[in-house]
Design a protein around this nucleic acid. Sequence first.
DNA 1: TATGAGATCAACT
DNA 2: GTTGATCTCATAC
Length: 190
Amino acid sequence: MPKPRPIRRDFFARSVHEIAPELIGATLLVGGVGGRIVELEAYHHTDPAAHSYNGVTERNAVMFGPPGTVYVYRSYGIHWCLNFVCEPAGSASAVLIRALEPTEGLARMRRRRGLSEERLLCSGPGRLAEALGVTHAHNGLALDRAPFELYARTEKPDIAVGVRIGITKAAELPWRYGIAGSRYLSKPFK
DNA sequence: TATGAGATCAACT
DNA sequence: GTTGATCTCATAC
């Protein structure tokens, strides 16, 4: 195995549409627990589905901050969802990390998630956050500092593209990316 | 395999 | 009061 190369914050100071496919296959750890990113979605500030579309609120404030920052929001009143802020500060764009192939800290993930088969540990944004212990306490933290670790992929996977999941606004935009055929996706690609 | 309810909160109308 | 970047469990087919 080649030595993993850390991804630094400046990686994120570009178009979210360039970043999103490049992050597929990267390794994300939180407190040493995590795995390979197999699915994510892009949200651009000009996109009606983005939280930042209607301007700053208390919830989405970190989206308007510097790139390479972690944005965590509560979903459906129940779950936490993990995002990485992209583009130059003020652009308020982000990628939602939707699924991981678990590789590190399997035992801790299982404990946090309760009895659960490996395939379901991180296959969805809410599940992923629970398995990695991500909460609002992580909102606004830098991605290249503890407890976060992010490493570039060593090989380019076969990347699938599709429409985003669970949204009604701008639902037709093909801004969901994933590893084609991975069994850890929240849903298969068409 | 598919559909539906419930959990529970921030933003918006 | 309604909706939403969700998940789990129950019930129906």
